[in-house]
Write a protein that binds this DNA or RNA. Structure first.
Length: 248
DNA sequence: CGAGTTTGACCAGCGC
DNA sequence: GCGCTGGTCAAACTCG
């Protein structure tokens, strides 16, 4: 190996190291932000009665899919949703979750130009589970899968974390139908600017690398109603679906 | 040939 | 009552 090639490799490795360092710094910031918001909400939760939590959740979920006019009555526990990041060029609506699905319909909905596909579980003839799959309005590289019902049979190969080619990681819940929350932990650098609260903070943080500003960022985030509502909805949903044993 | 997909038609809930 | 909309049906089609 000649000196030129060696130097080139060193430069590449240094730049990679620098990039990973930045990524690490960003991740640490995000964890602090989440932790802070979570602590605040957990401190508030004991003061809220169950019905307050439920009405709060319903209100948040209404705002999440506004414009949808369901044929069925509003239920307190909404069907679970998972968010899967895919290749933006990939136009298929396929979410691999370990089950076999049979497509029975497709519709273009009013609030989203991308078509919504309707699937039924085909692993068992009597399985009542359905899912709706549609690309996110805000980020077309994200597929939103909504599950309804409960499987009445065994399944295989769920509960995995999947890594995308771009390095993003999407955690799929152990049971997408069960009472667990699925979080999209994607931190893709190529994600479009959207209303994701972290976006601006991450950029600010990149340009101003003084870590003492973290507290300011955290403070600004806790003032972000949208972020707090989302976080509260996730925590509240978890509490409603996993009620603590009574008498403690 | 069977299983899965596509797609237009149909049905039912909701707002006006 | 009417129109809009989301959800479902089912015949035609595709694929292995």
């Amino acid at each position: 190996m000649d000196a030129f090639t060696y130097n080139e490799k060193v430069v590449n490795l240094r730049s990679e190291l620098e990039r990973l360092g930045k990524e690490n710094e960003n991740l640490r910031l995000l964890i602090e932000v989440m932790s802070n918001g979570c602590n605040i909400l957990q401190a508030q939760l004991p003061k809220m009665k169950d019905d307050q939590i439920r009405s709060f959740l319903i209100e948040n979920e209404r705002s999440y899919d506004s414009g949808k006019r369901g044929r069925t009555k509003v239920s307190v526990i909404k069907p679970s949703q998972i968010f899967v990041r895919t290749d933006p060029n990939d136009k298929s609506l396929i979410v691999k979750d370990g089950f076999q699905w049979r497509k029975y319909g497709q519709k273009v909905t009013k609030d989203n130009p991308s078509p919504r596909a309707y699937y039924r579980c085909s692993m068992a003839p009597s399985c009542p589970v359905k899912k709706k799959v549609q690309r996110s309005l805000e980020d077309e590289s994200v597929i939103v899968a909504t599950y309804e019902g409960e499987h009445n049979h065994e399944h295989d190969g769920v509960g995995k974390s999947t890594a995308s080619p771009d390095g993003s990681i999407t955690r799929v819940a152990d049971d997408p139908i069960g009472p667990s929350i699925t979080l999209d932990l994607t931190l893709s650098r190529t994600s479009k600017e959207s209303n994701i609260p972290f976006q601006n903070i991450r950029e600010n943080h990149n340009t101003n690398r003084n870590c003492s500003d973290i507290e300011d960022f955290v403070a600004s985030l806790t003032k972000d109603n949208k972020f707090m509502a989302s976080l509260a909805a996730a925590i509240g949903k978890s509490l409603v679906e996993h009620p603590r044993p009574t008498g403690t």
